[in-house]
Design a protein around this nucleic acid. Structure first.
Lengths: 256, 256
DNA sequence: CGTGGGAGG
DNA sequence: CCTCACACG
């Protein structure tokens, strides 16, 4: 069994203070895909650097901003940063680690909530991501794109679909993009293992006590090649931990 | 008896969180001279605005920076902001409240620790302050200039005089300025009531656990006209409170 | 509401 | 070390 977690940390230093190490000790994933490090590699807290994981980070040029990483018990065969577009790679939004049996990505799509300019860049990221993802889907290894896509797919994935239909993260063109991804070979494994179940979210605003009222969004995904859906045995959102405004999305894959 | 306190708050909002109201309730000064409000008047916490004091503030134009104020149980006859020099008055460093029996100032001298340019402005402030103070000394009412002068007068007023002899706040020209003030009619009342007593400080750096080791500086003063020295009965630095990096300097005057 | 940076102390 | 303003989410 291979346990893979995806977690937007909202600052690896803050998450460390909130018990990131305790969560690792308890949940014990084989691979952890991290987003929003909000730190340079040398700023990662020592206790996290000392964990018994191989660690790879792709940080943003801007300090305290974005950044992705992958931790894994097994040493990867190769690691690759970025997607090949300058502005995206300067923001530290894509990292890949290739293992013997599968390839893993940690993905952090831009947020569009701060204005039109950023929303346009978000759509540009999605446009660039789609062929990039397909190219890796056509490789001969199973592949999983874990991460914060900053999009809710369907009304069931958001606590208030009506009120948010014009909100970045739940816009028709964003939702269509996820549908397209799923119609062209990818599987939203968490949802496939929880079809029709409402109130399952991975992010809650820090405002207005959203989490205790479970007013959330499901914007963190494992987007996989088909064989990983078949391999998936359990998918959980670990919302009892308060590591950040996101919860870890953890899926156990039986790679046989 | 008239109890007057001087306190650099290092942010009135932070001081409020640290128990400013509790200190007032317990110490119960008649007049409180405040420095470093680091807030606009509308940002002063409601519970402080609701205290049974008349409150007057002279804030800086720059947000979150400097600012002085006077709280008093008695309503002043008049209040005056500033010293008549634009850059000083834009920084909110001087406020006066005139009462029936005395005139009270709250003073916040610039810090020179951030570089030569600010050190020069500090000296300019001191140059402007001296004739301003003397002009009020020659009025017919007792006068007290309470505040953070950002200068230690003598070796006894600082925990490490040798190491700090070239540090802003303990420079020869700054120390001479205080001597000049005291040689031309003003009294450092706290020191006069504690002649020769070492280890009495009003400020401790937040770094290196300075306060618990009492590695401090005495930079907060009541500088008074001579009749107020005669009236002074008790002078205490209330260092048991942790309201900011400064402690209240509280003196009880018997105005007969 | 919360994180991180940076100025100012 | 601490406070505040600001950018970003």
């Amino acid at each position: 069994m291979l346990k893979i977690s995806s977690l937007n940390l909202n600052g690896i230093r803050a998450a460390h203070r909130r018990g990131f190490k305790d969560w690792i000790a308890q949940s014990n994933p084989d691979i952890i895909c991290l987003q929003e490090l909000r730190a340079m590699e040398h700023q990662v807290p020592g206790p996290i650097q000392s964990l018994n994981y191989h660690a790879f980070y792709h940080t943003a040029e801007k300090k305290g901003y974005s950044g992705v990483g992958i931790l894994s018990r097994e040493e990867p065969i190769s690691v690759q940063d970025g997607i090949g577009v300058d502005w995206i790679d300067q923001e530290g939004r894509v990292i890949m680690a290739e293992y013997t049996d599968l390839t893993v990505f940690s993905i952090y799509a831009p947020s569009g909530t701060t204005g039109d300019a950023r929303q346009e860049l978000k759509m540009e990221f999605l446009d660039v991501f789609l062929p990039f993802a397909h190219q890796h889907l056509e490789g001969d290894k199973p592949v999983v794109f874990c991460g914060d896509f900053n999009i809710c797919h369907r009304p069931i994935d958001i606590h208030n679909p009506k009120r948010n239909k014009n909100t970045s993260g739940f816009l028709p063109e964003e939702r269509k993009w996820v549908s397209l991804l799923l119609d062209t070979g990818f599987e939203d494994v968490y949802r496939r293992l929880h079809e029709g179940e409402p109130d399952l979210y991975s992010w809650w605003s820090y405002r207005a006590a959203s989490k205790e009222r479970n007013k959330g969004w499901r914007i963190d995904y494992h987007m996989t090649s088909p064989e990983l859906l078949d391999a998936a045995e359990e998918a959980v959102i670990e919302k009892d931990w308060d590591l950040s405004d996101h919860a870890p999305v953890t899926i156990s894959y039986n790679l046989g």
